[in-house]
Simulated assay, not measured.
Amino acid sequence: MRRMRRLRVPGIREMVSETDLGIQNLVQPIFVDERITEPRMIESMPGQYHQSIESVAAEAGALEDLGVPAVLLFGLPSTKDEMGSAAADPDGVIQKAVRAIKECTSLLVITDLCLCEYTSHGHCGLVRGERVLNDETLPLLGEVAVSQAQAGADIVAPSGMMDHMVRAIRTSLDWEGFADTPILSYSAKYASTFYGPFREAAQSGFAFGDRRGYQMDPANFAEALWEVQLDIEEGADMVMVKPAMPYLDVLRAVKEMFGMPTAAYQVSGEYSMIQAAAERGWLDERAAFLESLMCIKRAGADMIITYWAKEYARQCEG
């Protein structure tokens, strides 16, 4: 008679483990604020910091020494306007951060490509009145992509959920001689309450309305597959599901249907909930993060963007 517990004793349990999670699967997000001169703690995300242009290279070097293979950069500019002009500035915060990191490390640098951190109204595209303009935004996203690639970004990651953004970015990159720069598209990005702490971290709250007009309805599953398929057809090299844990069913379906390199983003709310529970003694921080990351990997993620990547490297790879 079969007894499943025979395979659960120490030694055998590890030997028959079906899912392999390692530091090579993880990406550490970094927030870079050009208005500060030294790291500053993000209150809503314990253990995370705003880095300055001066400190980001040292942070990247520490991550590389720990074995973290890649970072995802978000920029906080010194000035914002209606057009999000600073996003494409060759001397903008992301561009300077990329150059600083590349001068002293061999880390893969992924750049978040969106206007929300740079616009005075906080939306991911241009606006007219209280309407977010899709088609008028696309050329600007192409300009931002080229500027980031010129600075040395290894991968650009459009996150604004503008229709046909991948096509516009791929066309601009190819035209300017960056045909080899991959696109990691936030293809299935849901309008999620789990982004709450990120609003403080990126200082990207919106002045009116919300983002449900261009981010996905959490009730929808099939729509995510349409979104992913469209991005692949337009030239995406990698696709993403965001958030991660509440959408593991979507993640599994995307990986099985398309077989593309697939990322999942363990977002700020997922991270901060575990941290808050751990601070109160309700959860073991290490065990909770390891279980959640393993579940995301098991569901099909090749890459996991997580604020716990640095801690994983310290606690599990050292």
Rank of each mutant, 00 (worst) to 15 (best):
Y195A: 14
A236S: 10
A87Y: 06
R131P: 00
R35K: 12
Y265F: 15
G67F: 01
G300Q: 08
I23H: 00
G152N: 10
A100G: 13
L72A: 05
A149Y: 09
P261F: 08
L133T: 04
A277G: 12
A86F: 02
Q51S: 10
G22K: 10
D284T: 03
M260H: 04
G125C: 09
V239K: 07
S292M: 12
G160Y: 06
V250P: 05
M45F: 00
Q229P: 00
P39K: 10
C316Y: 02
F206T: 13
L126N: 02
L26E: 00
A151K: 06
R8I: 03
L283R: 12
A57N: 06
W226T: 15
K297G: 06
D302I: 02
S172N: 04
R286G: 11
A244W: 14
L66V: 04
L173F: 11
A60L: 03
M303C: 06
A153V: 09
L63F: 02
W226M: 07
V132C: 10
M294K: 09
A70H: 01
Q150K: 15
V71T: 04
Q95G: 05
P139L: 08
V32R: 00
C124G: 11
D112P: 09
L113M: 14
A151N: 07
F74E: 14
L63P: 00
Q28G: 00
Y186T: 04
R167F: 05
S272N: 03
E130F: 04
R167H: 07
M238A: 14
F74H: 10
A299F: 04
A288D: 09
M240R: 08
R314P: 03
V71Y: 05
K80Q: 15
L141M: 15
L184G: 07
L108Y: 14
L141N: 05
G22I: 01
K242N: 06
T111S: 15
V127L: 04
A188L: 07
Y312T: 04
T137A: 15
L283I: 07
L76Y: 05
N25P: 03
S147R: 08
P29T: 01
I101A: 12
G22E: 07
R99Y: 06
S159T: 13
S120A: 15
P261W: 09
V144T: 11
Q150H: 14
D302Y: 04
D33N: 15
A145G: 07
D210W: 05
E256V: 00
L225P: 11
V241F: 14
Y307V: 09
S106R: 15
E143C: 11
D180L: 08
D154W: 07
T119M: 11
E14W: 06
A57L: 05
Y312A: 00
H123Y: 09
S172E: 12
I36S: 00
A276D: 12
R13A: 14
R131A: 11
Q275L: 08
E227M: 05
E82L: 11
R128P: 01
K310I: 00
T79C: 03
E130V: 04
M1W: 04
D91M: 07
Q148R: 05
A301H: 12
Q215M: 08
V166Y: 04
V241Y: 14
Y186Q: 05
A224T: 13
A58W: 02
E270Q: 09
A219W: 03
Y190D: 13
F221A: 06
V68A: 01
M45W: 01
S192Y: 09
I12G: 01
D33S: 03
R5P: 01
F74Y: 15
P69W: 01
A244M: 12
D81M: 14
W282D: 03
A157G: 05
G209T: 06
